[in-house]
Design a protein around this nucleic acid. Structure first.
Lengths: 127, 127
DNA sequence: CGGTATCCGTTGTGATACTG
DNA sequence: CAGTATCACAACGGATACCG
């Protein structure tokens, strides 16, 4: 039997810091991670390629987010010692397993974000 | 046909700010939302009850997070004008639809967080 | 090319005091 | 009981300059 978010969310303490769902949100909940994972979905990318494809990301945040993903074993960094140096980033097998939960999030968004937006407008008009 | 995170993540601009997956992460990616949704999973709760059940949450963050969920139509707030006043919070039908994506996140966490933790240790030992 | 280092504004969160 | 108001502080992220 699989536990529900409801059950596990309240099973742990203190601060429920080890709620499993909170842990993955710490991992993918930031501004850039899902965009990088998305960009690496089909094939590996060079650093500069990622920078171009992900509009608005700074060099700092691209490096920082990639380092985090590499540290967690979700992305593999490969350096080809050519001149100039070439660095390729690719999802690992573990990284690919993110597909299912990310897909679930995306499907919810597509199905419900219109309602959420309407609810916000109604709420703001009311008060 | 359903789009993948990979495809949709890079379709939009600028900053890919309207990637659907990013939008739901803006909604549930904070520190307290999933814990509150979890606490409301089976039944409605009073304000003080939520405060007791969710260890470590401050009054400010509980209020603030509940207001956001109410504004988005995911939680319904009901005031019973007794003395002293009683306020009940419950998930709406829309709020209950979060079950599927939250469950997917939780299953990933349970299946993979051990590997992630091991990868972190290996990475930190290496460098 | 693929980074690091530094500075700095913004945002998220917590502590505390007060209120209808 | 269920909040609101205010202050303080740390983390996040962007801009810029520099480097192997």
């Amino acid at each position: 039997m699989v536990t529900t978010p409801a059950e596990s969310a309240l099973r742990d303490s203190p601060y429920h810091a080890d709620c499993p769902t909170r842990h993955i949100l710490d991992r993918i909940g930031d501004r850039w991670t899902v965009l990088i994972v998305g960009a690496l979905w089909d094939r590996s990318n060079r650093f500069s390629e990622l920078r171009r494809r992900i509009e608005g990301i700074s060099q700092k945040m691209l490096t920082q987010t990639l380092r985090g993903l590499e540290r967690d074993g979700l992305v593999r960094r490969t350096v080809y010692p050519e001149v100039p140096v070439r660095v390729e980033y690719a999802l690992t097998e573990a990284g690919r397993t993110l597909r299912k939960p990310l897909r679930a999030l995306e499907e919810w968004s597509i199905a419900h974000l219109g309602d959420v937006s309407a609810a916000q407008k109604a709420y703001d008009r009311a008060d």
